[in-house]
């Protein structure tokens, strides 16, 4: 799902616009799997799949594979509908520079929900 983000996000100006001042690299963990995402002016420039050793990132978003699977349903159930829904459940952890994460929260919510378009 995460590896499809460049095409899902970069083709959607309604998402890109919310991140147009963002230039940062962040880590997403789907259970054990690590993905390093680099954003340039709101476009996902690259997605590098781990395992990663000693790589730098501005912030990290970590959740279990089961949580992401429920989050990425085409119509998620109550409790799995939003990144902050996972936060309220205690199912996601934010680490690193929270300022950048909060500055681009709307963008990040839209980016991370974009794989729902691919769900059955």
């Amino acid at each position: 799902m995460i590896d499809k983000l460049p095409e899902l996000v970069n083709a959607d100006p309604a998402i890109v616009r919310w991140g147009r001042h963002m230039n940062a690299t962040f880590l997403v963990e789907v259970g054990e799997a690590q993905y390093l995402l680099t954003v340039r002016a709101g476009r996902i420039e690259s997605v590098e799949k781990g395992p990663l050793v000693m790589r730098a990132w501005t912030f990290a978003i970590r959740a279990s594979k089961e949580s992401w699977d429920r989050f990425w349903c085409r119509v998620p159930e109550p409790g799995w509908s939003d990144l902050f829904a996972l936060l309220r459940r205690g199912d996601v952890r934010f680490e690193g520079d929270q300022r950048v994460l909060m500055a681009y929260l709307l963008y990040l919510k839209l980016v991370l929900a974009a794989p729902r378009k691919l769900a059955a």
């Binding site: 919310w18 119509v75 998620p76 509908s81 939003d82 990144l83 902050f84 829904a85 300022r99 909060m102 500055a103 929260l105 709307l106 919510k109």
Partner: peptide, 18 residues
């Protein structure tokens, strides 16, 4: 250093039903 309008909007956005 965080746009309040965008951050508050982002919080409200997720609380709604898809």
């Amino acid at each position: 250093e965080v746009h309040g309008g965008q951050a508050c909007g982002a919080v409200a956005y997720g609380l709604m039903s898809p």
